Amino acid sequence: MRYWLIKSEPDVFSYEDLEKAPKKTTCWDSVRNSSARNFMRDGMKKGDLAFYYHSNADPSAIVGICEIVREGYPDPTSWDPSHDYFDPKSDPDMPTWYMVDVKAVKAFRTPVPLQQVKDDPALADMALVKVGRLSVVPVTPDEWAHVCALGGV
């Protein structure tokens, strides 16, 4: 099993929205960064776990855990001209963009704010800190255990 961190702005789709989704599950679509796409297409496997991170929030924080319940598959929003993340260069026969399905597992009792992550020496090399702009990043097993303890799960 591998561990990940996925980001969403809470006013777009919050962890609470995920918990309210049918079967607490949704597709994780509209990612338009090739590195994040590669993680979803090639790295994420069914059963992997991911931190759910609220970005552009006050404060930005890791707020829960979700599970990858469907491995990477083509993201049809890239072919939909009415969608905000339409990509005219994407081709259904040779998809450019991928998505995964995620399911809510557990909300943190105590959200872990970005500043706390940045200030914690045990998390100094975490991709959330080092590669802050990606919407999907890997998390090491040690980082996973440490953040889970901080979040009370």
Rank of each mutant, 00 (worst) to 15 (best):
D120N: 10
E19W: 08
P92T: 06
R37D: 12
K130G: 01
W97F: 09
S14P: 02
V105L: 11
T110P: 03
S34C: 13
W79L: 14
M94R: 15
W144I: 08
D75H: 03
H83L: 04
N33S: 01
P74Y: 05
D119N: 12
A104M: 07
P81Q: 11
W28C: 07
V137T: 05
G151R: 04
K23Y: 11
P88M: 09
S82K: 12
D58I: 06
D125G: 13
K106G: 09
M40W: 02
D93S: 15
N33W: 04
M1S: 12
Q116S: 10
E9T: 05
V100N: 08
V139L: 10
G132F: 03
K23S: 14
T140A: 00
V147I: 15
Y52A: 03
G47Q: 04
A149G: 07
S78N: 07
A50D: 01
H54P: 01
L49E: 11
M40N: 05
P76R: 09
S60E: 00
K45A: 13
R2S: 15
T96N: 14
D75K: 06
S60M: 01
G47C: 08
K24T: 09
V139R: 05
S60L: 01
L49I: 11
G132C: 04
L5K: 02
M40I: 09
T96L: 14
P92R: 09
W97P: 07
D120S: 06
A50R: 02
A107N: 04
F108K: 05
V69Q: 07
T96M: 14
K7V: 01
S34P: 11
P95S: 06
P141Q: 06
P81C: 02
C27V: 15
Y3S: 04
F39S: 07
G64N: 03
S135A: 02
W79E: 12
E71Y: 08
S90T: 10
D119P: 00
L114T: 01
P121I: 06
V153M: 14
K20Q: 15
P88G: 11
D80V: 06
K130F: 02
G152I: 05
E16Y: 09
R109E: 15
F51V: 01
D142R: 12
N33T: 03
V12W: 12
T25I: 11
C27R: 14
G72C: 04
V131R: 07
K24Y: 07
V117M: 06
A21C: 09
T96A: 15
L49Q: 12
D58N: 11
K24W: 11
L18M: 07
V31W: 01
K7N: 02
T26G: 11
A124E: 10
N56W: 08
P59M: 00
N33Q: 04
D142G: 12
N38A: 13
T26E: 12
K23P: 11
A21G: 07
E67M: 08
P22E: 14
R2G: 11
Q115P: 00
P113D: 00
M99S: 08
G151I: 04
F108H: 04
R133Y: 05
Y53S: 03
K23F: 10
D119T: 04
D91L: 10
T110R: 13
D48P: 07
L114C: 01
D11M: 14
S60A: 07
K24P: 06
K20F: 08
P95L: 06
K118R: 13
R109P: 00
